[in-house]
Nucleic acid binder design. Structure first.
Lengths: 237, 237
DNA sequence: GCTAATATGTCATGAAAATGTAACATTTCA
DNA sequence: TGAAATGTTACATTTTCATGACATATTAGC
């Protein structure tokens, strides 16, 4: 399978983590685990999973705290969260929904149900906002098909360049430092040389250039801001 | 950069404090230290560091206590904390300290990793608030896109001229001596010839002039105050 | 499981831009 | 007018970027 989606399982009980892990594996997801809210937070920031399964009843009640925090911080706000909770009380649901959690699954649950919910949430969250193609002039990036087209011709680029372009197109007209770009495109705390960003910028530009017709060169949309970083802008440099 | 960020190192071992201090210094941070939780708390309240590196194995387990307290008190809740932990073997205890710490680093760690994580956390916690564009007549400086426009046309200038203009536009109608300008634009403890400021003022004026249309010359906004320094003012000289 | 094809990250190098300084020109004002 | 203050220019040096080459890692296809 091309792009396996990664789910982070946050639960203090090993048995539950294992059970869910197997279920996800069977369903074609890749998974990682965390026992504590702190560990989870670090994992999320560092590796940017596609979805988080979060046990409500983490020791210290920190599950809710974590959810609130994730939704508050810009870097992680768009990662969908499904709460795992033992209780069925309305209170909890209301409280959690306030936090901006995407769905609930109450224990005990069947693996089948869990997987169904995960797929639903992923469909929804990647379906609503991000699934809409982003277009700038004749350059279109379509997350649904994971494809970039220029004048209706496919633009050939590597996965990293795709993510890079996606990030830029969703954050136009702003400068980003190389560090910031690394956070967003590679995940925080991935130690790369700063120049690596330059190289991938170069590759992205080249891809756009060789796909551009005789008119505008779309590589010009990706602008170097000396001493500051890079910027995606439709306005001349 | 103008304002050096300050990191508070809280550890009872002098060797570790020194090692970290040197690493931070090399990375361009300024640092201060505390040996005990009490001392740390006083320092934090008094001097408001930009980030706290906190050893959670402080004598008496007071490291955790301090973290919890800092995150509970409104005055200090927004100061990011990175925990320094010995090992993950103590998972039971670790669970108890999910108090909203921003990241943790396990000893032994490389200075490089530590600095990278510090930067990542600082970026996360402060990166969000970006300033709004500042506009004077048709001259606009937009920090978000790191761009200066005049009548919607980009004004080309070097990084230093950008910082200079940014400083002036955020402090209009006031004279500043060359020394003061140096402190603000180049940073304190940087020694330059006084003439250097003049040169950059000149470059900034030239940039504004060549971007100005036939109407007003925007270079006139940057006024020489003989014997005193320079001033950014919308009123005629 | 193995191999070929892709993709990735790092480095070295050269080019371009930015910077600080000194020298010289010009303006200001007593 | 002339000394002090400021403006301007040229240039050597430093910093920052772009890019091709390469070694490694990952993926896809068989």
């Amino acid at each position: 399978m091309t792009n396996e989606q990664t789910i982070l399982i946050v639960d203090d009980e090993a048995a539950i983590r294992d059970m869910i892990g197997i279920a996800l594996d069977t369903a074609g997801f890749s998974s990682m685990t965390a026992e504590t809210a702190l560990e989870a937070h670090v994992n999320i920031v560092d590796r940017r999973p596609d979805l988080v399964l979060l046990d409500w009843m983490l020791p210290g009640g920190s599950g809710i705290e974590l959810a609130r925090r994730l939704k508050r911080e810009e870097l992680t706000a768009d990662i969908p969260i499904i709460m795992l909770t033992a209780k069925t009380s309305e209170d909890n649901k209301v409280q959690g929904l306030d936090v901006g959690v995407d769905d609930y699954v109450t224990k005990p649950f069947s693996p089948r149900e869990l997987v169904a919910r995960i797929k639903a949430v992923l469909r929804r969250s990647t379906g609503n906002l991000r699934d809409k193609p982003i277009r700038v002039f004749d350059l279109e990036l379509d997350p649904a098909s994971h494809r970039v087209t220029l004048d209706d011709h496919a633009v050939d680029m590597g996965p990293t360049e795709y993510r890079l372009l996606n990030f830029f197109m969703t954050h136009p007209e702003k400068v980003f430092s190389r560090d910031h770009i690394q956070d967003q495109v590679w995940g925080a705390n991935v130690y790369l040389e700063e120049r690596t960003v330059d190289v991938h910028i170069g590759r992205l530009r080249k891809a756009l250039t060789s796909a551009s017709g005789p008119g505008i060169n779309y590589a010009g949309l990706i602008q170097t801001v000396r001493g500051a970083g890079y910027r995606f802008s439709t306005r001349p440099d």
